[in-house]
Amino acid sequence: MEKNSKKAMIITLATIGIISALLLSFVYEWTTPYIQANQAQKQKQAINEVLPGVVEVKKVEKNGNIFYEGYDANGNRVGVAFTSTGGGYNGVIEVMIGVNLEQNQIYKISILNHQETPGLGARITGKEFKSNFNNQPFGNYNVVKTPPSKEMQVQAIAGATISSESVTEIIESGLDKVTSAYGGGN
């Protein structure tokens, strides 16, 4: 068979392709359980972070959105956690929000995924910024550049106003989602 014949070329590429696909399917089989476990773990951690004292979590679907209802040891519903996503400065930001529906209050928030600038926007994952939302009532928030003096104010991260405002908007739209799903306002 001639070295540069069409047949030789096709056979070479096909063989390499088949071997590669075969090897990768093994790698995929091997790593997928770990990758899924990592994601589940991350989500579980985030739910525990945003809902206090929860021992059992139930996954519910309402209006096409997924909510995680957290129950305490006595079977009382403590609150609901859910994710909300939106655009940030560099890419999509995914936020886990834990809310108390009885008092229309946020418990806490946690950032699941983001691509913000390291050292600037990435500080949305820091405690200092996230605590802005601790125990805030539902509603529209104002992003301010000084330490918050009253309710509904969120202090922006210095040098990362866009990231701060994005997270605030993502949370506001998430709250709309949860109140409409749970027939909020009462």
Partner: peptide
């Protein structure tokens, strides 16, 4: 692709 899966898993 191997490296990509490996990093994501471990």
């Amino acid at each position: 692709t191997f490296v990509d899966y490996f990093l994501k898993a471990f």
